[in-house]
């Protein structure tokens, strides 16, 4: 396996995206007394963002085309 440079760059971009999603300004944005289907907004946000990030990583590394 040689690390495809495109895959590597995509993963690095995902890392940067994750760092922003899970850090101060964006977390603060969702840190309010609100609910999403009865779940506190902050938790709903973190778990949804997390799941989205994982889906993105799976999509990037499992593609065989490049």
């Amino acid at each position: 396996m040689t690390p495809s440079s495109l895959t590597g760059q995509r993963l690095t971009a995902i890392f940067l995206l994750g760092w922003v999603l899970f850090d101060y300004p964006l977390l603060f944005l969702f840190n309010r007394n609100a609910n999403l289907f009865g779940i506190p907004l902050l938790y709903a946000y973190v778990f949804l963002a997390w799941a989205g990030l994982i889906a993105l990583m799976a999509w990037v590394v499992e593609r065989r085309s490049d």
Partner: peptide, 17 residues
């Protein structure tokens, strides 16, 4: 309790290289 699991998630994206 969550950063302990978010950190590895982020790190895994760099594991590739």
């Amino acid at each position: 309790f969550l950063p302990i699991y978010l950190g590895p998630t982020l790190m895994l994206s760099l594991w590739w290289f």
